[in-house]
């Protein structure tokens, strides 16, 4: 079987879906963040696959930016997690339900 671009896209899509589903079913913000990373990685894979198919380096360049975005997001996201827990010592986030959606 030949590995066409399509297979990479399928893999990327699967990662995206798994990540998205995970984000929706998990309640732990840390894991949610990881799921976001999964989604971004699925996208990255698609970008690289397209880049190769198109014979254009642009797709790879974009992945580079996505990495930076992911890093920035994670820094802030983890900062938030820390801020939430740090300022209420002894409580778990189960108590954080002032804003039930």
């Amino acid at each position: 079987m030949e590995i066409t671009t399509g297979w990479y896209l399928v893999l990327g899509a699967l990662l995206f879906v798994i990540g998205g589903t995970g984000l929706l079913i998990r309640r732990n913000p840390l894991v949610m963040l990881m799921c976001v990373e999964l989604m971004l990685n699925g996208v990255n894979l698609s970008f690289v696959a397209f880049s190769r198919t198109l014979g254009d380096i642009g797709g790879q360049t974009v992945v580079f930016f996505v990495l930076v975005v992911a890093a920035a997001e994670v820094v802030v996201g983890l900062g938030l997690v820390v801020a939430i827990l740090r300022r209420q010592p002894g409580s778990t986030a189960d108590d954080l339900s002032a804003l039930k959606g």
Binding site: L9, G12, F16, G19, G20, V36, M39, L40, G42, V43, S46, F47, A49, F50, T53, L54, G58, G59, V62, V66, V69, E73
Partner: peptide, 13 residues
């Protein structure tokens, strides 16, 4: 953002 980015990827593709 991930959705948006995926959209961008497919547009690019």
């Amino acid at each position: 953002s991930a959705f948006l980015l995926y959209g961008i990827a497919l547009t690019y593709g």
